[in-house]
Simulated scan of single mutants.
Amino acid sequence: MCGRYAVTTDPARLAAEIDARNEVSEHDVAEKFSTGNYNVAPTTTVMTVVDRHSREPESDVARRIRAMRWGLVPPWTKASSKDELGKGPLLFNARAESLAEKPAFRSSFKSKRALVPMDGWYEWKPGPNGPNGKPTKVPYFMSPEDGTRLFMGALWAAWRPAQAREAGDDSAWVSSTTIITTDSVGALTDVHHRMPLIMPFEHWDAWLDPDAPADPALLAPPAVELVDRITIREVPPLVNRVANNGPELLDPV
Rank of each mutant, 00 (worst) to 15 (best):
K125A: 10
R63Y: 09
F92N: 02
W159M: 03
L208F: 08
L90Y: 03
V174Q: 15
S59D: 12
D83K: 14
D183S: 14
S54M: 13
R55F: 11
T44E: 12
D119E: 12
E26C: 03
E23A: 10
L218V: 09
L85C: 10
A30M: 10
N245M: 00
A162C: 00
K82A: 14
V253D: 07
Q163E: 15
A6N: 01
L226D: 08
V49C: 04
I198P: 00
Q163I: 10
S171Y: 08
L72V: 05
E17T: 12
R113S: 10
T136G: 10
R21K: 12
T77E: 02
V174S: 05
H193L: 10
A243H: 11
E56W: 07
A167Q: 13
V29H: 07
P139D: 03
A15C: 02
A15E: 05
V185L: 06
G127I: 06
A167S: 11
I18R: 02
S108L: 09
L218K: 04
K137H: 14
E202R: 14
A67I: 04
V40A: 09
W124N: 06
A94V: 03
R149P: 01
S98C: 05
A114Y: 09
V50P: 05
A243W: 02
V40Y: 00
P213L: 10
G168N: 10
P42M: 09
